[in-house]
Design a protein around this nucleic acid. Structure first.
Lengths: 138, 138, 138, 138
DNA sequence: GTGGTCTAGACCACT
DNA sequence: GTGGTCTAGACCACG
């Protein structure tokens, strides 16, 4: 259960954490009851401030994706069923904004559907399958 | 020559304007000499701050994409040749970041290539060809 | 649009703010488009840290109750319709936890329904009608 | 003599135990000499930390409500006289904070006295008379 | 050990 | 002017 944090990226650190947890839970790679690294451990590992990690965890707890086990850290909540059909819909919903943005930009750039799809396919092939990469390009 | 502005989107308004102009010029849909809406008109139409429009226009002028014609507002500059092979490479370069981001998220969500491509195709079909849409989905 | 903040209360300050906004919006006392005091103004008025206010506002934005007008502060979001039947259900849902807790305690203390209701009525009569009190007892 | 513990509730576990004992003793449902479950038994039954139970019992002992019988665990102390007029006042005092909180929230939500009382009555009817419920609504 | 809260101050981005 | 983000450090509550 490792995180990929890039302090220099334009996306705020706390949001990088939030989105990674969302995607890993939605994809079923992390399951209900799995323990997350402690605030202090994650902060120290990536040389960031504990409050930044805490902020991300708090947001995920408010969202219902994580649960606080008092005195024992955070675990993945038991509410979602990522395996079923609802899980598939959720995953699509999470991916859709990125696809729509890309589609809109392709249109504004005058690309035909085939060209855009071909370029996207090339991007997919250049993106490793595992979600556990340590330093993804941004 | 209409703009699509969404004040509630995470992308800053001035950047939305900048990127839209870049794409429409790169694609050849807007050509040298075309007049852009005045700062005041664009600001009023979308209920945004004139300073925001002005900031975007200034950035585009500094970039050499627009020219300031005294008393006539801004027009598309004459420097680029969007039709050639170099233009094609430029258009791809402009689209690539969005595609890479989508590809990465698709991977982290556990989608196979075929699924991701199919979802992207659906998005493309739901996105009108013209760049003149007024309210795209967010 | 005034807030009642008691730094010495056991309830965290940021949560006092969150709950007050929730209740005032749910009751229709604050309506869509109403502007909230700025982070800095509210912080200074009650001699608390701006980050504490900001945290409360951020939570309310994530909840969809407030909207950020960039560069212009926060306003009440336009999504809810507090006047309708759904609003009434929402208000009841917000009140229910407190009532249930009181009911459970009354039971564990061995009160009969009539006694508990009578005591509650006395409490209601001692609680001013206006929600704008500046220093409510805790 | 069963306890209702909800580890996920905002109220700390040790305090849930303390308050339940207080209420059951004040109401006369638990009487002098009654034995409480052992620290280990209570901890195991609710899957909580024995230290948490021990902390609650110690607080109650310091308060004079419980007594430690060597080798026999804790029993309800003999000091109070819950049946008299003073006992009634005590019970009311224990219930009052919850009622005041509910009344304040009802006011801030814009409820009239009649509505609030009616909702409270419904809550009371849905709350079993016995204090031995195992899973109350949260 | 765990996370929560608050403070103080700095810097950034946007309008 | 607005809010957002991050850092550093302190203290608390809980288990």
């Amino acid at each position: 259960m490792r995180f990929s944090i890039q302090p220099s990226a334009p996306e705020p650190i706390y949001r990088q954490i939030v989105e990674q947890v969302r995607r890993h839970v939605a994809s079923g790679q992390w399951r209900a009851g799995d323990e997350l690294p402690s605030v202090r451990a994650l902060a120290q590992e990536h040389a960031i401030n504990p409050m930044t990690v805490s902020k991300a965890y708090s947001l995920l707890e408010a969202e219902g994706l994580l649960e606080r086990r008092r005195g024992m850290g955070m675990v993945v909540a038991a509410r979602r069923s990522p395996g079923g059909a609802a899980g598939a819909a959720r995953r699509e919903a999470l991916l859709e904004p990125a696809l729509q943005a890309a589609a809109l930009q392709a249109r504004q750039l005058g690309f035909a559907d085939g060209e855009a799809l071909s370029l996207f396919q090339r991007c997919l092939q250049h993106t490793p399958t595992s979600g556990d990469r340590d330093d993804e390009p941004r």
